[in-house]
């Protein structure tokens, strides 16, 4: 529990709470991005450079921008006037608490050591790359295929076909 960890954790929690509590949707996304960035910094602090930087690259760079674009294309820019608490906030928080309890129980009862730093905290890029390219090459390829299909699907959805629409 170093000071760095406490600061980063506070930033992450503040960001995610603000993402739930703010009225303006764009503000929510920006706050969520702060949460992502805090999480990335936590990964970096643990020595997981690759994961941390990928978190920034994917979540801050891509997901946040995507969310922002989606909001701007669908939502009216006016601020919502309704309460930030939805009508089923109680059941929602109950579910969240249950999930948290299950996670906590799973971690607590795990046979893996926790609470102490593993001997090799440095998760270098090279072993990750080796693992992806040797042991997990099939899942990687399948995922790539899936994403390519999704990409083509998006293009097909977006472009008007002249002969179909006419």
């Amino acid at each position: 529990m170093t000071a760095t960890f406490l600061i980063l954790a506070a930033i992450t929690i503040a960001g995610t709470v603000a993402a739930m509590a703010m009225r303006n949707l764009i503000h929510c996304v920006l706050a969520l991005t702060l949460g992502f960035a805090g999480l990335a910094a936590l990964y970096l602090q643990l020595g997981a450079q690759f994961v941390g930087l990928t978190q920034i690259l994917v979540y801050v760079g891509a997901v946040a921008i995507l969310a922002v674009f989606v909001i701007m294309m669908t939502q009216h820019p006016t601020q919502t006037t309704e309460s930030i608490f939805s009508s089923f906030w109680f059941s929602g928080s109950l579910i969240a608490a249950l999930v948290f309890a299950v996670l906590g129980w799973a971690i607590h009862s795990s046979r893996l050591p926790y609470g102490i730093a593993p001997p090799h905290a440095e998760a270098a890029v090279q072993p990750i790359g080796d693992a992806l390219m040797h042991k997990y090459v099939l899942p990687l390829e399948i995922m790539g295929l899936l994403l390519t299909a999704a990409l083509i699907g998006a293009v097909v959805l977006a472009i008007h076909e002249k002969r179909r629409s006419a």
Partner: peptide
């Protein structure tokens, strides 16, 4: 992961 870091902080510019 220096180059990854470079591109990661480059995406902050977009934001």
């Amino acid at each position: 992961a220096g180059i990854l870091f470079f591109f990661a902080v480059g995406t902050l510019v977009e934001l």
